[in-house]
Design a protein around this nucleic acid. Structure first.
Length: 596
RNA sequence: GGGGGCGUGGUGAAGCCUGGAGUUCACGUCGGCCUGUCAAGCCGAAGAUCGCGGGUUCAAAUCCCGUCGUCCCCGCCA
């Protein structure tokens, strides 16, 4: 050994062209087959795997070591590359034409019996995978996901560097600006009783960079939001954050389209057509009932107001008279039983609708439905025509306030739709409203208060209809990210705070440092942030972002591997001027490392 | 905060509804045989407080209550 390099070649890269070469491999024992007079090993490293043959007759020493090898031993192998004997090539392996005849085998590090097998043959309980995540990362699925993530991020950097962006880091210990999501707080030792927050996004810092003359900024930014977990949400996650000066919305969208094209070219080997479709928020709500439509399938929402204008069906008439809407989708040929249709009704109710009216189109254009008897001939014909329905189609109709009908039809549509799992439908949703209506009917800001409204006067006079320069990127029904044109005029910013009900003094105390910055010649600027975990998880066909994160946390914020979070020692708490009180105080702070 | 699913040798599953001896299957582990295998094969063995606590019962993996862990969804995520 000594000065000799541990490895001369990567296991997965050996080919027939290497025949006759002496090579030195290092990797893990992926499998060992003992045929009684000859051993076959499969050696795996990050590049792939290759078969190694050990002949104890020719090499008694190597044979002795091979006898004791077990799965996942870390080993070094020296030997000659040779073509496999006639008829023994393995077409399923890229290295299947050759094998390495070992002359020397060294155990670099033995391995205990494994808590689960290193292959993708069976689903292993996720908590177990996370507890031994370093072993899970050796499995093909996770290894491939790490590679995909790395290549995706590299493609983003490549595209942005080519477009003249500069990567700048922003702090992760920042002032808390309690808006939106809950902050993750970090206590300060030097100022006991004071706290930093971890950034929910680099929002204000990237705007300061614009004021600082950076003009084209990007960052692969870790973000923290202390809200409940979902399959697409973790306590910490990663965004591609970008911002540009002297820029408008279309500049942002076009720059990002180039980034996405670069990523897809690398990860999927396809060239996406640009520009991506753009829907206004209004259009998206009308056609799909959501601001993140899955356009991999049709079933668009149709408005039936004209069909039922003056209807004798009192349920519909009453709703239309009081300003509600009657809308529906053609769910296509479902062949559903009564109970299946009732189950759809439950889905609609679960989304807030009072009822679902279903119609099955029969031969001759008549409708089978509990409410068919209330409808006139013209209404039946109108329904069939509006949905371009053919016999066998199931029509699902909801009548209520528009704000109730949209989510109900959205949920129904997603439930009955059959999206092509291989399709990738990127689109932009633009012109979001400034405010969205909460469940209780009150108006709440839909975006952060630095988002530029189309017209700040309209924002004050007609808040319900005011639009903002905010936009989202959507892929296959998932929100990948959002951005906006920012306010660069301090006067406008003050008006916006005012309209949002944030008093001058409050704005001053929370954001004074930022408002002052706006006063020193702020360039018009706009930007965006893309959820990298979400993007890669969809491209990898993974059901959740934990598969894309090397060391994720469980739904309760725990890490099964390290057991984080833990309590803190009395010494740590004392230094920080903190005391644990209430129920939490009863729990043992045993996990803390007193040596800290 | 709410609704739902899951928890059975090291791993994955079946068993649970309809209670009756820790029963079954595949993988892994350990030992033996085997000189061209590649999810090697064949033979044999070991390995479990059925997540935990309580209750019902003559009897609980199974039924009930609680609890812990985990996953999915609603709320929440400017």
């Amino acid at each position: 050994m000594g000065d000799q390099p541990l490895r001369s070649d990567k296991a997965g890269e050996l080919r027939v062209a290497d025949e006759g070469r002496q090579v030195r491999l290092a990797g893990w024992v992926a499998s060992r087959r003992d045929l009684g007079g000859v051993y076959f090993l499969v050696i795996r490293d990050a590049s792939g795997r290759v078969q190694v043959v050990i002949d104890p007759q020719a090499d008694p020493a190597a044979g002795e070591i091979a006898k004791d090898l077990r799965d996942e031993y870390c080993v070094a192998v020296t030997g000659g590359v040779r073509r496999r004997p006639e008829g023994t090539a393995n077409p399923d392996m890229p290295t299947g034409e050759i094998e390495v005849a070992a002359s020397q085998v060294t155990v670099l590090s033995p391995a205990d019996p494994l808590p689960f097998q290193i292959d993708d043959r069976s689903e292993v309980d996720e908590t177990r995978r996370l507890k031994w995540r370093y072993l899970d990362l050796r499995r093909p699925r996770m290894a491939a996901n790490l590679v995909a993530r790395s290549r995706g991020v590299a493609a983003m950097r490549r595209s942005l560097e080519r477009q003249g962006f500069m990567e700048v880091e922003t702090p992760t210990l920042i002032r808390s600006t309690p808006e939106g999501a809950r902050d993750v707080l970090v206590p300060s030792r030097l100022r006991p009783g004071s706290f930093y927050a971890l950034p929910q996004s680099p929002q204000l810092f990237k705007q300061l960079l614009m004021i600082g003359g950076v003009e084209r900024y990007y960052q692969i930014a870790r973000c923290y939001r202390d809200e409940d977990f979902r399959s697409d949400r973790q306590l910490e996650f990663t965004q591609l954050d970008i911002e540009g000066s002297f820029w408008g919305r279309d500049d942002v969208l076009e720059a990002l389209e180039q980034v996405i094209v670069e990523v897809l070219g690398d990860l999927r080997g396809i060239h996406l057509e640009t520009p991506f479709p753009r829907l206004t928020y209004r259009e998206s709500m009308d056609r799909y009932g959501t601001d993140k439509p899955d356009t991999r399938f049709g079933m668009e929402i149709r408005d039936l107001g004209a069909v039922f204008a003056g209807t004798g069906f009192r349920a519909f008439a009453g709703i239309l008279d009081s300003g509600g809407v009657v809308r529906g989708i053609n769910a296509g040929p479902r062949g559903l039983s009564r109970s299946g249709l009732d189950a759809l009704g439950e889905i609609a109710k679960g989304a807030g609708a009072k009822a679902l009216a279903w119609f099955v189109v029969e031969e001759g254009g008549t409708l089978r439905s509990p409410v068919a008897k209330f409808l006139g001939e013209a209404e039946v014909a109108g329904l069939v025509e509006t949905f371009a329905a053919v016999p066998g189609d199931t029509l699902l109709v909801v009548a209520d306030d528009a704000g109730v009908v949209a989510p109900a039809l959205d949920r129904l549509r997603r439930h009955v739709g059959h999206p092509d799992p291989d399709a990738l439908r990127f689109l932009w949703v633009i012109d979001f409203p400034v405010f969205e209506k909460a469940a209780d009917g009150s108006l709440a800001p839909a975006h952060h208060p630095f988002t530029s409204p189309h017209d700040v006067d309209e924002m004050g006079s007609d808040p319900e209809h005011a639009l903002s320069h905010a936009y989202d990127l959507v892929l296959n029904g998932s929100e990948l990210g959002s951005g906006s044109v920012r306010i660069h005029d301090p006067a406008v910013q003050r008006r916006v705070f005012e309209i949002l009900g944030i008093a001058d003094e409050e704005a001053e105390s929370r954001f004074g440092w930022f408002l002052e910055a706006l006063r020193y010649g702020t360039p018009p600027h706009a930007g965006f942030a893309v959820g990298i975990d979400r993007l890669v998880s969809i491209l990898q066909g993974e059901p959740n972002i934990r598969e894309i994160i090397p060391f994720p946390k469980t739904q309760t914020g725990a890490d099964p591997l390290t057991q984080a979070p833990t309590g803190a020692s009395a010494e740590q708490l004392a230094e920080l001027g903190l005391a644990v009180v209430g129920e939490a105080a009863g729990e043992e702070a045993g996990g803390a490392d007193p040596a800290g």
